[in-house]
């Protein structure tokens, strides 16, 4: 009876030491969950979620401060992916944070631009090029379509233009078939 007790206590101690040691030895730096959530987020850095960027939102989700349905650019697919990752129920997008829009890029009307650099300061990915009192322009390939540059422009020369479909970025559609009317059923069989 006592031997069994000693054996159990011994085992518990041994395992405790092993676990304690491995907890120290294999300690994971940082929070991998934040990085994994951040990887799902679309990185538009638009702030529609109410946080100043994708990473802060990811951090907030990881801490349980934010909900998973606050990212309109990520769309429904993004919410699904987050729900899968975190093992929580899927929720439809919260309309408070905006509606998902087709991906677009900012375009500066270069005739109107006065070179105030306000948009340059607003751009979260440094995708606007220009200098004070010189015309600015958007590097379209780097623009995430976050719309953060639109509001600060004092002359309203920035517009968001949806990316047009071209043979280069065209996608095959999901196969949809028309349901054809069935062949007229013979009355005879009914009778």
């Amino acid at each position: 009876m006592l031997t069994a007790l000693y054996v159990m206590i011994g085992l518990a101690l041994l395992l405790g030491i092993v676990l304690g040691y491995s907890a120290l030895k294999f300690k994971v730096e940082g929070d991998p969950l934040i990085a994994r959530i951040d990887a799902i987020l679309p990185q538009t850095q638009c702030g529609q979620c109410g946080y100043p960027g994708c990473k802060p939102y990811a951090t907030a989700i990881a801490k349980g401060e934010a909900d998973i349905n606050q990212c309109p650019p990520g769309g429904d697919a993004g919410v699904h992916a987050l729900a899968d990752l975190l093992g929580v129920e899927y929720k439809p997008l919260n309309a408070e944070h905006g509606e998902p829009k087709p991906k677009s890029v900012a375009v500066i009307d270069e005739n109107v631009c006065i070179g105030c650099t306000l948009c340059i300061q607003a751009c979260p990915v440094d995708a606007i090029l220009g200098a004070a009192k010189h015309m600015h322009t958007v590097i379209a390939s780097e623009c995430t379509g976050c719309e953060l540059c639109v509001a600060p422009c004092p002359v309203d020369c920035i517009s968001m233009e949806p990316i047009a479909e071209s043979p280069a970025n065209w996608k095959w559609r999901y196969p949809v078939f028309e349901i054809k009317p069935e062949r007229p059923v013979q009355k005879k069989s009914a009778a």
């Binding site: 990185q43 850095q45 960027g53 994708c54 990473k55 990915v125 996608k171």
Partner: peptide
């Protein structure tokens, strides 16, 4: 299959763009 392939390619491109955006944002 064509649908799935082009969808995967588009997703990969979006992912690549997101990675670049993240890098640029972090750099900023």
């Amino acid at each position: 299959y064509r649908y799935a392939k082009s969808e995967i390619i588009a997703q990969d491109r979006a992912k690549e763009a997101a990675d670049i955006a993240r890098e640029r944002n972090e750099f900023r």
